[in-house]
């Protein structure tokens, strides 16, 4: 845990509030980039919420990451419109540019994490990817290399 003080502040903000676990974990993840076992254990100790419940929630929702992630997160949309517009070729182009094997999602230098998401809601621009908060639409595999070069 790198941000213990900030985490303590966040926990204090939510203590005693109803339904706080998910927003609490979301804020901690924003600070830490992911939820490590130590972090979850710490939250459990501080809040009195059983660690099994915290782990249960963290593994249920796709937004929570249990592994460290890269500096830039690439979300590849696999929604219906993107699927029929060959989103697979975009994913392939990204993986090949970043030299990622099938079972890897983060580059060795920790610069990029690639994940597939259900739908980004920009279906009319399919196929679409999102890098951090920037959306790129009407993609072809040839465009990927230049887009990724902008991030370092």
């Amino acid at each position: 845990m790198k941000n213990k003080e900030k985490i303590d502040l966040t926990i204090n903000n939510y203590l005693g509030k109803k339904g706080a676990l998910i927003p609490l974990l979301q804020e901690i993840q924003t600070l830490e980039k992911y939820l490590s076992k130590d972090t979850m254990r710490y939250v459990s100790e501080k809040t009195g919420i059983a660690i099994a419940r915290i782990y249960g929630v963290a593994t249920f929702y796709t937004m929570f990451r249990l592994k460290p992630q890269g500096k830039h997160v690439i979300r590849v949309c696999k929604g219906t419109a993107c699927h029929v517009s060959d989103a697979n070729s975009i994913l392939k182009a990204i993986n090949s540019k970043l030299n990622l094997e099938d079972d890897q999602d983060t580059t060795k230098d920790g610069l990029f994490t690639v994940m597939e998401v259900a739908c980004l809601g920009c279906c009319s621009l399919a196929p679409v990817i999102m890098i951090n908060d920037n959306t790129y639409g009407k993609l072809t595999p040839e465009l990927i290399s230049n887009i990724l070069d902008k991030y370092n």
Partner: peptide, 11 residues
């Protein structure tokens, strides 16, 4: 919580 892939009306 518009979740259907291919739908963006609510957004």
């Amino acid at each position: 919580d518009e979740g259907d892939p291919g739908a963006f009306m609510d957004r």
